[in-house]
Amino acid sequence: MSFAMEPYLALLLIGFLPSEAWRWLGIVLGRGLDENSEIILWVRAVATALIAGVVARIVLIPPGALAGVPLSVRLVALGGGFLAFLFIRRSAFAGVLAGEALLIAGALAFGT
């Protein structure tokens, strides 16, 4: 391993490029599209479903430290956060705070 360079090269080649390429492709594909076209509606639906997919995936198959919190606690925290959002003036802030509070309380109560 050549120490100084290797992590930066890795960042560029396997961190930056594979991720950034989607943004560049987005510029190319989004160029000719009309704001009110049917395809933009479809793309918005795909984007929303993908974001929801990321939510489900991180909660069900979590990376690193989150895997130490029991699945039931993660699910209750997600559901409870969403309910807090719905019932507290549709405030995203309320949802995030309630979800985090439930996660931390649950992890403390039921172990990590």
Binding site: A52, I58, A77, A92, V96
Partner: peptide, 26 residues
């Protein structure tokens, strides 16, 4: 617990902010 809590903020914030923006059936 900080690491776990920091990783959880991505899904919970994505969920509620996307739900907040979701105005139509689509």
């Amino acid at each position: 617990l900080f690491g776990a809590a920091a990783m959880f903020i991505t899904p919970i914030s994505f969920l509620v902010s996307t739900a907040r923006n979701a105005r139509i059936l689509l």
